[in-house]
Amino acid sequence: MTDAAPPPVMEFRSVGMCYSGRPRVVALDTCDLRIGRGEYVTMVGPSGSGKSTFLNIAGLLDTPTSGRYLLDGIDTGTVTRRQRAALRGTRIGFVFQAFHLLAHRTALENVELAMVYQGVPRRERRVRAEEALHRVGLGHRGDFLPTRLSGGERQRVAIARAVVTRPSLLLCDEPTGNLDSGTTTSVLGLLSELHDAGMTLVVVTHDARVAAQGRRTLTMLDGSLRDLSPMGTAR
């Protein structure tokens, strides 16, 4: 007998998000989506199309008003608030356009903070944070404050912070939006390296160059999700 195939990292089953009022607002139309382990998916769409709503649901920051969201096979709509927070902290990594680093903490300390709420012992936090910084090419910048780092270096610290918890899913919201062309190339190379090492990535972007890095590209328009790839399952 062979082992059963692992569940998708994330799966939307008829997921939708509506806001009541007059008029009623459909932020995310009912959609189905499966993203398997190790996929590199990009998402494009104009401002106001629903990309942020999608990310907030995928990142367990918002709860959909309809449908089911399964993360690593876990139905996130059936867990407690504390369990949702634990899933978000252990299984999801976030990378943002604005970095969101603490200015008064060193690069190493910023990365360590991601593990504090997991209860990781201090000594292990330090070792794992150092390893994560080395992984993104910043092992020599651990004691630098963010104000002493370039934009590209700060984004690399943010990526190290996102992956140090060893998440199942890495969500990136315009990760190169504040970077110049040369630095964008460097960060895209790092994301490709993470994907090659087995990381599952979902990258939301306005940049066609960034979108082209994905193995699948989703399009969001007026709250409706479309997957134009040959094997796409979003609708």
Results as ranks from 00 to 15, higher is better:
99 F>S: 05
86 A>W: 13
89 G>N: 15
139 G>L: 09
74 I>S: 05
23 P>W: 06
89 G>Q: 14
42 T>Y: 01
94 F>V: 01
58 A>P: 10
127 V>A: 03
77 G>R: 09
11 E>C: 05
134 H>P: 04
20 S>R: 11
41 V>Q: 13
130 E>W: 06
115 M>G: 07
29 D>V: 01
128 R>S: 01
40 Y>E: 09
16 G>W: 08
32 D>G: 13
24 R>D: 11
26 V>D: 00
37 R>A: 15
107 A>N: 03
47 S>K: 07
6 P>N: 13
48 G>H: 11
20 S>Q: 11
35 I>M: 12
73 G>T: 04
150 S>G: 04
141 R>A: 03
134 H>Q: 08
62 D>K: 02
88 R>G: 06
130 E>R: 03
72 D>I: 02
94 F>G: 00
94 F>T: 03
99 F>M: 07
124 E>M: 12
82 R>V: 11
102 L>W: 07
72 D>G: 14
128 R>G: 01
127 V>D: 02
147 T>C: 08
88 R>M: 01
57 I>D: 04
97 Q>S: 11
144 F>W: 04
64 P>D: 11
32 D>W: 14
25 V>R: 00
121 P>C: 03
95 V>R: 01
128 R>N: 04
46 P>W: 04
13 R>A: 11
116 V>Q: 06
104 H>Y: 13
120 V>Y: 05
46 P>G: 00
139 G>D: 12
85 A>M: 07
52 S>T: 07
128 R>Q: 07
17 M>T: 05
32 D>F: 13
6 P>C: 07
116 V>G: 01
62 D>P: 01
77 G>L: 05
65 T>Q: 06
123 R>K: 15
92 I>A: 09
